[in-house]
């Protein structure tokens, strides 16, 4: 479990992660207007923060690959799967703890109630896994950090737009909605609709399932790629 343990330590020593992990969520959770059930922007903004956090956590895998440190890791009796699994598990736990803290604070401030809190935590966590998997797949396609970052910021804006972060998905034109369905952000939005609808319908579980499938696909792609 060496890789798992040090994945924690390494992540918590990087500034970009700390900002995404602590500063941003705390900054938005106290802005009351974001969390009214009619507005509900906050729930989606927080999703985007998770996406950023995931991207910046997975960065350490990309750094290992670019600096050639993976060569040394794989010169040891370590399988690719172990290396990826232990890293991603640590990253997920970091985000997971953050979502719990976040939802607990939110519930205390705005009285979300236990059932809603559980559903939020589940939504955010499966979205975190999808985001981690997406970042892994994304980073495996690039050799340069600058390239990866530049294109990622375009993609993430697109995802935010099509995922209903700025405009509710119900207000998007039909063809944009269909494109949006190709990104996990759309399904996060969709899974959070219950907050306004006040109705636990099949849409919630469908969204969870689709985010899960996204994760599996991205993970498969991201780990198939050679690490050097």
């Amino acid at each position: 479990m060496t890789i798992f343990l040090f994945a924690f330590i390494r992540s918590l020593r990087r500034k970009s992660t700390l900002v995404a992990m602590f500063v941003l969520p705390l900054a938005i959770v106290f802005i009351r207007t974001l969390w009214t059930l009619e507005n509900g922007r906050g729930f989606l903004f927080y999703g985007m923060i998770i996406m950023f956090a995931a991207f910046s956590l997975v960065r350490s895998i990309m750094i290992d690959r670019m600096t050639g440190t993976v060569v040394r890791i794989f010169a040891a009796p370590v399988a690719t799967f172990q290396y990826l699994f232990q890293n991603l598990l640590a990253f997920w736990l970091i985000i997971g703890v953050q979502t719990i803290v976040f939802v607990v604070i939110g519930s205390a401030l705005y009285g979300w109630g236990i059932e809603m809190a559980v559903r939020l935590i589940l939504s955010y966590n499966i979205f975190a896994v999808a985001s981690l998997a997406f970042s892994l797949a994304w980073n495996s396609m690039f050799r340069s950090k600058v390239m990866s970052d530049a294109i990622f910021s375009i993609i993430i804006s697109l995802m935010a737009l099509l995922g209903g972060i700025f405009i509710p998905i119900s207000m998007l034109p039909d063809f944009l909605r269909k494109i949006g369905m190709l990104f996990p952000t759309y399904w996060l939005s969709n899974s959070l609709l219950f907050i306004q609808d006040k109705e636990w319908n099949g849409q919630y579980w469908l969204s969870i399932l689709i985010m899960f499938l996204f994760s599996a696909a991205f993970l498969l792609y991201g780990s198939k790629r050679r690490l050097e």
Binding site: T2, I3, L5
Partner: peptide
């Protein structure tokens, strides 16, 4: 294996780097 490039973890101290590779 001592690699041609310096391949150690930037975020970890010398001691932690050794603990990491020993642990592997």
């Amino acid at each position: 294996l001592v690699t041609q490039e310096v391949t150690v973890f930037e975020e970890l101290t010398a001691e932690e780097n050794l603990r990491y590779f020993g642990g592997l």
